[in-house]
Design a protein around this nucleic acid. Structure first.
Lengths: 193, 193
DNA sequence: AGGCTCATGTAACCGGTTACATGATTAT
DNA sequence: ATAATCATGTAACCGGTTACATGAGCCT
């Protein structure tokens, strides 16, 4: 329900082609909204049909032709409406497959769940490393340094960073607890179930 | 892609009716996997057709009849396979509409985004309050106190708690920064865009 | 000649949501 | 009477994913 608004959001900065949008999503929103290429192109058609954006074909000699989309007044209006909307469900309605697995981990040997948590920890740390390069990439598509845009981009980056940090601390705690239980209290021969 | 496994997970503890499952989801998985009633009943049919669970009608005189579902051997096998699977995408592929709005907040007056963040903060604090009652409710459907189940339930509760705490701290930071910028550096008459 | 970036799609599918709908029994 | 709990669905829809597909031009 958000992809079309993400597109409108980018087009509100400046007109872009589908290809540009794919890259914009990859380099920024990726961290909290992974979008499929095909889905973006599909959504562009829908938005144009609705009259929220309008496309113009640009003929290029050195590379394939492209369509540059601009946001329309109605499009901008819809986008700003969306921005102003409340979103109370967002705090409560998040889905996390990994946590579901943790929840049901009593069904596998503790050694296996320790391994699972270690993998999660490794993935988080890997992610954190790759995140180091965000602040610079954010600078690249800022159009107007006068306004608050970069500030909000920093906010989302801050969120991502804090979130991953929290995940790392949590996973570390869990692993410690499991290992303490496994090596000290209960000998590893005792397998649940 | 996880709901059927959530159902299998619960049925692996003990046989349950669709109604029981709805309540089980509401009282526990709710925090990271909100499930629709209708979806659960739909999924039960699919799982039965696949032979992962089997239902038995229980005739009741004091209340409407019901169907109690039990997990089959193949069902248990599939469930354990799922548990053992890796889930690297889970760290990277999360969707958050609210963060998308923050990302595009340069398009609205700072006062409005402060309001949005305050609302988020309030929602988080509200959520945190309601979370206080989880540990007790978890105790209720533990079948076998000998095994590690409750430990893992605590892990997920710990995650939820830490996550909300992180959100609260983050939102507080953001609001502070915005207010400092608005009241000290730039007079509020200057509205971006 | 072969790989890269640029550029854009279609078709099938699926997980999940929303709205709607029914009906029994029990407690007040 | 009527509200609450128990109990179970159907149908339409939609957001998003996966797989597949094409083709121009540039660089080496």
């Amino acid at each position: 329900m958000s992809l079309p608004f993400g597109i409108l959001g980018f087009l509100n900065y400046k007109p872009m082609s589908g290809y540009d949008l794919v890259k914009a999503f990859e380099s920024s929103l990726e961290f909290f909204w992974h979008a499929q290429k095909s889905h973006i192109y599909l959504e562009l058609k829908k938005l144009e049909k609705k009259g929220y954006i309008c496309g113009e074909t640009v003929i290029q000699s050195d590379r394939p032709n492209k369509t540059i989309f601009s946001i329309t007044d109605t499009g901008r209006e819809k986008f700003l409406d969306w921005l102003a909307e409340g979103n109370a469900e967002d705090v409560t309605h998040f889905k996390n497959t990994f946590l579901m697995k943790v929840f049901f981990s009593g069904n596998m040997p503790p050694s296996q769940s320790v391994e699972m948590l270690r993998q999660f920890l490794a993935d988080c740390e890997d992610y954190l490393k790759r995140m180091g390069s965000i602040p610079e990439s954010i600078e690249n598509y800022g159009t107007d340094k006068e306004n608050y845009q970069t500030l909000y981009w920093q906010f989302t980056a801050d969120f991502g960073y804090s979130y991953i940090k929290t995940c790392i601390e949590w996973a570390t705690r869990c692993i410690e607890k499991l290992e303490r239980l496994c090596t000290l209290q209960t000998p590893c021969t005792r397998i649940p179930r």
